[in-house]
Amino acid sequence: MAELTRSQSFFIRHEFGIRRLHSLLGIVPLGLYMCIHLVTNASLMGGAAPFQHAVFWIHSLGPALPILEWGGIFLPLLFHAIIGVWIIRTGKSNTSQYSFTSNKRYKWQRWTGLIAFVFLMFHVLHLHGWFHITPWLAVMQPLGFAQFYPYNAASSLAAAMDQWIWGFWPAFYLVGVMATVYHLANGLWTAGITWGLWTSATAMQRATKVCTVFGVLLGMVALTAWWAAVSMGPADIAAAREKEQEMYDAAVATGLAFDDPHKRAGNDHAEPLSEVDVEAVIIEETIVVEPDSQ
């Protein structure tokens, strides 16, 4: 064998721990977070208000939120994805020769994992933006990324879905979210084998049924969330924006929301500007304000 680099040998020495961590992180926090996320988004089906309420509640964490986002979601996600890509590279699918169902599931688990990786990287960039640093946002927002404004949750989400070529983001999200749902449901099943939760063939079959039901239910929640976001027209967006404004005023009064212009659509320049920011912000303004004027 060729000389191992230090990181390779570290990986080999700790393979067991690393792969168990990979398996665990896929369920907690990632899988759990995904369920909460999709249910929250599905609440948009009930109108802008319940959704906005949920988002206020999440964002009431204030400065602790980025810590939770990075420690509880982004870093575990990156770890899971990078180790996942490494795992994929250790295998060589042979479904054309052995077309058993479980072998196809093995293949799909890998494909949906890759799709989910690409999807989530862009999803976070598209709506969240990854980093909430002014110069970064000043570049990303005009490009059509970092489009979600928590204090205008429904309207900014719906407007973001409508950007670029018509139908691009909705199609992207539909494929991405469905692949992710499969990956989680099937991943629960394989995790049960990995950790030794279900061992006999009958137990595995039963677990398959449970995971299928889970996957179908979560898939329906995901579809609901997706439809709620992509089906809003300009009139709905304008109405939502009004409702959000009302709720914002009330939320600030009760201390649920902070006076943070960064979290409000078309409003993030109220704070004093540093000289460097001025030019970038002007570009930004012309684009971000647009959905407002409709």
Binding site: I12, E15, F16, T90, F100, S102, T194
Partner: peptide, 19 residues
Amino acid sequence: LSGPGGITTCGNAQNCVAV
């Protein structure tokens, strides 16, 4: 089995049991 190339390398394709 906990070492390199041990149990964690299995990807649960379950071809083994089928053949």
